[in-house]
């Protein structure tokens, strides 16, 4: 029982981060239907931006804010300078996907070239072990869970109770009708890329205070981001949250029955089974 509780706790910690990653990619995909492969690059870019500011002796919190700002700008720039012109020329989804992949690979290589392959830790966040009975976690874990859920709740509040949020939901559910009622979908697209990049920047920060950054951290984050969205259900941001939690807990608990190296296999198996049985995802709506 002790081991189960410990692994469940680990699953919730990891799942919270996965849920944040999921909503960061989900808000972009649900609204724009762009398979934003470059999201992984934005994740890496955010980590290194925060690190660069700390190397310039800027304190941690201002470094975080500046890093998030630059990551948000980078996300908007990708939409404005790469995807938008392609959509204007009626480029196919495949062309946009290939462009996104190019940005991801080129961006990752550039970071590798500038900063080298070394691991870059983000120092300054206090880490202490906390034990509650048989369950052990750290202050970094606690902070991760709290911040992830605060950010997710804020996002849902923003989408549900602000004019901009409602416009995003309108474009997301029916872009053509949204245009008829005067919503500029292009501006909304840029906005959701900004929001998604801000959220993935927060996830990158939480990850970097725990583990050092390397130029290739983005790919894993990207994989988790879109797996959670497709698992939970495209078009439903709550689905991404559910997908993240399920993945995190499954990844952690699987160790009780299978060797740890099968973690990734289990994740893809879960996705495969869900897509096979319910192609629209756990919370997704059936399209007639």
């Amino acid at each position: 029982m002790g081991l189960f509780l410990q692994l469940l706790t680990r699953g919730i910690i990891t799942g919270s981060l996965y849920a944040l990653l999921g909503v960061s990619w989900g808000i972009i995909y649900n609204t724009t239907r762009t398979f934003h492969f470059a999201h992984g690059f934005i994740y890496t870019f955010a980590s290194y931006s925060i690190l660069v500011f700390t190397w310039m002796s800027v304190p941690l919190i201002p470094s975080l804010l500046l890093g998030l700002f630059t990551a948000t700008l980078a996300g908007c720039a990708v939409e404005y300078f790469a995807y938008l012109p392609m959509r204007k020329k009626s480029a196919s989804q495949l062309s946009i996907f290939l462009t996104a992949m190019g940005i991801m690979i080129a961006g990752q290589s550039l970071i590798h070239l500038v900063f080298g392959p070394d691991s870059r830790p983000l120092e300054g966040f206090p880490e202490h072990v906390i034990s509650l009975g048989t369950v052990t976690f750290t202050t970094v874990d606690l902070f991760t869970v709290l911040l992830c859920w605060i950010v997710i709740v804020c996002l849902f509040a923003f989408l549900g109770h602000t004019k901009a949020g409602m416009m995003i939901r309108a474009v997301s559910s029916n872009p053509e009708k949204a245009t008829f009622i005067g919503i500029d979908s292009r501006r909304i697209f840029v906005l959701v890329f900004g929001i998604g990049s801000l959220l993935v920047g927060i996830a990158a920060f939480l990850s970097t205070i725990d583990k050092p950054a390397t130029p290739n951290i983005g790919l894993g984050a990207l994989l988790i981001s879109f797996i959670t969205v497709f698992l939970g259900g495209v078009g439903r941001l709550g689905g991404a949250v559910l997908g993240g939690i399920i993945l995190g807990i499954a990844e952690s608990l699987v160790i009780m029955v299978l060797p740890t190296e099968y973690k990734m296999m289990v994740i893809f198996l879960i996705l495969f089974l869900v897509v096979l049985i319910k192609p629209e995802g756990l919370l997704g709506k059936k399209i007639a």
């Binding site: 002790g2 081991l3 583990k211 990844e251 952690s252 160790i255 060797p259």
Partner: peptide, 20 residues
């Protein structure tokens, strides 16, 4: 005995088993 994936970065689940 636990075999892990090369290049993984999160071993807290494995450490939980070791702790038990």
């Amino acid at each position: 005995e636990q075999m892990h994936e090369t290049g993984a970065t999160d071993f807290t689940s494995e450490a939980s088993v070791i702790k038990a």
